[in-house]
Design a protein around this nucleic acid. Structure first.
Length: 616
RNA sequence: GCGCCUGUAGCUCAGUGGAUAGAGCACCCGCCUUCUAAGCGGAUUGUCGAAGGUUCAAAUCCUUCCAGGCGCGCCA
């Protein structure tokens, strides 16, 4: 995976140079990190006491994970297994040695760690007490919308180019996938401390625009009552019809009187503008805005393609053959044409100029998001970048697989306007923006999506997009309930609100000062405590999840995470009453936990661009 | 022919060298005088596509093969 080359280390203190320009003084105090520090200390002491065989330092990373089985504790560390080889000791013995040192630490006695045990073949399993959990809730309350922000990117400049559809027609669901992925990746990178720019490359020059002009003129003339043949080799007439209506509205009959050589480019340009405008509006509806719409035509006008060809020639990577200009591709299976014998540049030549421009702008990383059907172009683009004298590794192409639409398990293929593909706006109209974003964001780009239109519309648990939003709305509803008048369903009496708005606000201030207030969240009864503890552990994992998603370039992981948080909230909700007028400390603490949960859900939803509704 | 992606429960997927391979859906059984039952709990579900290899340990790494998708233009 291309993302693996990114620096995965988390550097502190946090210093954000992203577009929100925010600095945080607080350092993270994640439970896993604290536990890892504890194990590291234990290891160091064990070493100096000669309990680790020949080892003087730890040759393996100490990884703390949540085990799959609850019997294995809340968190577990398998480092003893990895150290066995280095220390020339049995894993179980290493684990026992480490555990002995950990048990001596204050954390093992003061409520941070409730218990630890060593299990075969050499795991150390920990059960958490309440103290670190209360710190975790406080951390979220303190950082609010910045909880989860990380600095994996260290302010590196990243350009993400995506959608880049031709301005010759409507966007289909496949464009939608690239659009949502690009936008989520941009949000994620921003959240993870990169300096992100988003760009749409407009192919507004060349053969397809000429074809658009011919088709547009014919469609226009036919609409205005002139009997002409519609070109058979261009874009389907019905795909243009709504755009031509707009052109007529704007320009009336002005192209009718023009000479064809004048009318074709003129109406082609007008139609192109209408289409691009339409694409822009549709993408805005999907909460996608670009920093830049980069016009191919602008490259031609500034002679940038000629310049790029000159650079290639200067670098001795071109030659002429059969009247065409070729790119010499060393180590590639074949050479590629840059300028056809007709004198026209190929797509590759234009791309060379475009990417030369990108490289000159000085990004640390450039990501292009393309449909997998374009993957054949990747080697050519990489070759031309190398021939231009730049580092081809700085440009990475993410390929998105196909989107299959289903309805009741049956494939949907037909569209009102086009025979084979389904249009993005039709899906958005049917299932709504949030569901479209969720289902297109949720998957790994390498896998095809089976988009079930019926599922996406369901207001039920089966629909993960709904379920997450419902959990957020439920949090809001509980917080609202605390400060609203109550209507008794049976007697019809109106009771005063349990708390005033001011009280609720003042709680927040108290939480910021004193994490121990959250001790009251937890019950002593283990069957209740387990849900309370699990919720907090999931909440505090957001920064980890952000880092993981960012280094793997998979924002979809945060969609899965949000779902998991929603699930843990529901389990908590079933077991733990929040509004407890007769028990202020518990109510206060649990309202704080609900605030934290709401915040985490909102932050995760923010990255995938799905709205977080306050009521449903 | 060559290249890329994919193959894990009936379905959708998680799991990038560690414990008995996990969720959700579907199906079945329970739970509403309680903050949204738009929900929760429980039961059932597997030759990790196949075969070899590396390793104390493989769904995960290597090799070969099988199946599906996509791509290999003086198209864009």
């Amino acid at each position: 995976m291309a993302g693996a080359q990114l620096d995965t280390q988390c550097v502190r203190p946090f210093l954000f140079q992203n577009r929100i320009h925010r600095k945080l003084q607080e350092t993270g105090i994640m439970i896993k990190e604290r536990l890892r520090d504890l194990i590291t200390k234990a290891f160091t002491q064990a070493c100096s006491d000669g309990k680790m065989g020949p080892l003087t330092e730890c040759p393996e990373p100490i990884i703390v994970e949540q085990p799959k089985l609850p019997e294995h504790g809340d968190l577990a560390c398998g480092v003893a297994l990895k150290l066995a080889r280095h220390a020339k000791l049995a894993p179980i013995q290493i684990a026992n040695n480490l555990a002995e040192y950990i048990r001596k630490t204050p954390e093992a006695k003061n409520g941070c760690i409730e218990s630890l045990e060593v299990a075969n073949p050499g795991f150390i399993n920990f059960r958490l007490g309440k103290v670190w959990l209360t710190d975790a809730i406080q951390e979220i309350i303190l950082k609010k919308e910045n909880f989860g922000r990380e600095n994996v990117g260290q302010g590196k400049k990243v350009l993400i180019e995506y959608v880049s559809a031709n301005p010759t027609g409507n966007l289909h669901i496949g464009h939608g996938r690239g659009a949502v992925l690009g936008s989520c990746l941009a949000n994620l990178f921003d959240f993870a401390g990169y300096d992100v720019e988003e760009e749409f490359y407009v192919n507004d020059a060349g053969a397809q625009i000429a074809a658009l002009g011919r088709c547009a003129l014919a469609a226009y003339q036919r609409k205005l009552g002139k009997e002409v043949e519609y070109p058979t080799d261009g874009y389907p007439e019905e795909s243009l019809t709504e755009y031509i209506d707009k052109v007529i509205e704007q320009d009336k009959d002005k192209y009718l009187s023009m000479d064809e050589t004048e009318a074709i480019p003129a109406i082609g340009n007008a139609t192109k503008k209408v289409i691009q405008d339409d694409q822009e509006k549709l993408l805005e509806r999907l909460h996608i805005t670009f920093d830049r719409w980069f016009s191919e035509e602008s490259l031609h006008q500034a002679n940038k393609v000629d310049e790029a060809m000159q650079v290639l020639a200067d670098n001795k990577f071109t030659y002429e053959k059969d009247g065409a200009l070729w790119l010499k591709s060393e180590g590639e299976e074949r050479d590629r044409v840059l300028r056809k014998s007709s004198g026209d540049y190929t797509y590759l030549a234009n791309d060379a100029a475009y990417h030369l421009d990108k490289f000159k702008r000085g990004y640390d990383l450039m990501i292009n998001i393309w449909g997998a059907d374009h993957h054949g172009q990747v080697p050519g683009l990489k070759a031309v970048i190398e021939a231009l004298g730049y580092d081809k590794e700085k440009l990475q192409v993410v390929l998105t697989q196909i989107v299959n639409l289903n309805r009741d398990g049956k494939a949907v293929r037909m569209s009102k306007r086009r025979g084979t593909v389904v249009m993005l706006d039709e899906v958005m109209d049917e299932v709504g923006v949030d569901a479209v974003r969720y289902f297109l964001a949720e998957s790994n780009p390498n896998n095809p999506i089976n988009f079930d239109l019926e599922l996406a519309k369901k207001q039920k648990r089966e629909n993960p997009a709904f379920y997450i939003q419902y959990a957020h709305a439920r949090c809001c509803s509980i917080l609202r309930k605390a400060v609203e008048e109550q209507n008794d369903r049976e007697t019809g009496e109106t009771k005063p609100a349990v708390l005033t708005e001011e009280q609720l606000k003042s709680f927040e201030k108290e939480f910021e000062k004193d994490a121990s207030l959250f001790l009251a969240v937890f019950d002593e009864a283990p069957e209740k405590f387990v849900y309370q503890k699990n919720l907090v552990m999931r909440l505090e994992a957001l920064p980890d999840e952000v880092r993981d998603a960012a280094v793997n370039w998979q924002p979809g992981k945060l969609a899965h995470y949000a779902y998991d948080v929603a699930n843990h909230l529901q389990k908590f909700y079933e077991e733990s009453q929040v509004i407890l007028p007769d028990n202020l400390p518990v109510m206060k603490a649990r309202l704080g936990l609900i605030m934290a949960t709401r915040q985490v859900l909102a932050n995760a939803l923010q990255v995938i661009g799905v709205s977080a509704p306050e009521r449903m």
